[in-house]
Design a binder for these strands. Sequence first.
RNA 1: UGGGAGAUCGUUCAAUGGUAGGACAACGGACUCUGACUCCGUGAAUCAAGGUUCAAAUCCUUGUCUCCCAGCCA
Length: 561
Amino acid sequence: MTQPNNPPPTDFIRDFIEDDLKTNKNDGVVAVRFPPEPNGYIHIGHAKSVCLNFGIAAQYGGTCNLRMDDTDPAGESLEYVDSIIHDIHWLGFDWQGRLFFASDYFEQLYQFAVALIKAGKAYVCSLSAEETREHRGSFTEPGIDSPYRNRSIEENIDLFARMRAGEFPDGEHVLRAKIDMAASNIVMRDPIMYRIKREPHFRTGTDWVIYPMYDFAHCLSDALEGITYSICTLEFENNRPLYDWFVEQLIPGRRPRQIEFARLNVSYTVLSKRRLIELVEKKYVSGWDDPRMPTVAGMRRRGYTPEAIRKFAAAIGVAKNDNLVDVALLEHCVREDLNERAPRAMAVLRPLRVVIDNYPENQVEEFECPNHPQNPEMGTRKVPFSRVLYIEHDDFLEDPPKKYHRLGPGREVRLRNAYVIRYESMVKNEQTGQIEEIHCTYDPETRNAPPADGRKIPGVIHWIAADHAVPAEVRLYDRLFRVPEPKDENYTADLNPDSLAILAKCYVEASLKDTIPGTGYQFERLGYFCADLKDSRPGKPVFNRIVPLRDSWAKIAGSPH
RNA sequence: UGGGAGAUCGUUCAAUGGUAGGACAACGGACUCUGACUCCGUGAAUCAAGGUUCAAAUCCUUGUCUCCCAGCCA
């Protein structure tokens, strides 16, 4: 299959870079970075940024660093670092060895801070957190200067050294930039550069008790790495003047350009780290890789492919508008990708026993079934057929409505890749009235051929030969939330109680018995499924539904959805 | 309320003073041994009001609405 030649994406950030390239702004250098804080797993929103940054680097012959923004030891860990590395690789990107940590710059950053003190542009402030807040003013009122603002340079250097040496308890002092307490932009009102925090850091251990703040560390890390475009999300727009201020004071001449774009929101899920952590910790989901989670790990386990996620990232574009992207677009991208690459197979989720009365008792035929209807290169597989089968319970109706193409009293239907069968009778449970079994006859002439008399068979249904059926557990996933935009407060009330349905007694065709976890199949007429990465075992497969097929019958019949 | 940013089909991204276009979603049809896929088609938008211009989504003015900022988080 030939890939359509997609034109390279365009957006306002690429336009900006191309303008620079035309004027040879940074000697043609395009250096970007993806800077996650290792305090959680990355999710589809990060994936957008990963695709953006690595995509830009690739497109313009530049580089993209991976930098762990580990300036606040609370909540950060190696587990998260490892997961981030794994997830970005899985998404299909590589930083060619340029993995950095903000914590690698701690000493350098400390020296920068000292330099700023010596320049009379930073001071040790001994206000409490609460006093600091009060001094900061409000949106409408200017702040007032800290009483410690005019400490001598010598005293500041001494105090800052002793902060580092661990002479003070947490919160006793902070280092602040001396800018302007009356600035209309609150970010510029003598922002805090360092705080004392006795929290072991997963990389530097207890070497440090002072840690740089984001605003101080991030811009200088960018400058140190020679980043030319520092792409971040919209909420940092207010911080850009401060970003520029620190670079200007300390590494003048290097001026990474911060460009902000709108973070991604997706309907029927949540993407804030706080809420994702809560879903995991309060066990609303089974973990960061729960297949319902919007994390990269969750989507991988669900069976979404990297290609689908990249396709989605390209489809949503990059702009500055607040957005709420319909999850249907993500699902569309997953289907589009899987439709091309997923081999077809048959599985019966809610089995109904069917006996073919005129089929010989002990006969077994093997049908050669194509693995893909449009792509013969994907080959064929053998599927056994015998007298007793299972079909989907939905595919038989005692009293079918108009337009129903499946099996019912007096009806014929084609068994996919096999014969046409005709309904003869049914067996009901005497107590419950449930249909337990139906009896049919088959037309031997219809294997690989339409009925000889030219009659039309309106329906095709899937099936499994009972003697060869492999029992399987199938997990049906639905959206995690029942509303498009879960409310901020008490969002757990919006959780979808039906986001997971476990079907313990399903059957899959024999070829799937030892299926490799993680590879996607289309179970024909049902959807895309893959064996679960964690729980599936050879001989005892457990399948996740990745996404159902589009179902225009469900619309006609009036689906519960 | 001060500052910053943004308003285009239901959703999302384009159109960079010159035919408002694509994708998703919706709806209709064709095809079909998957009610899938594919194909064809339909409906659907410039926040408002003024102004500049031969011509405005785009420029100007005024207004409206939404988002972000008062962590020793990022």
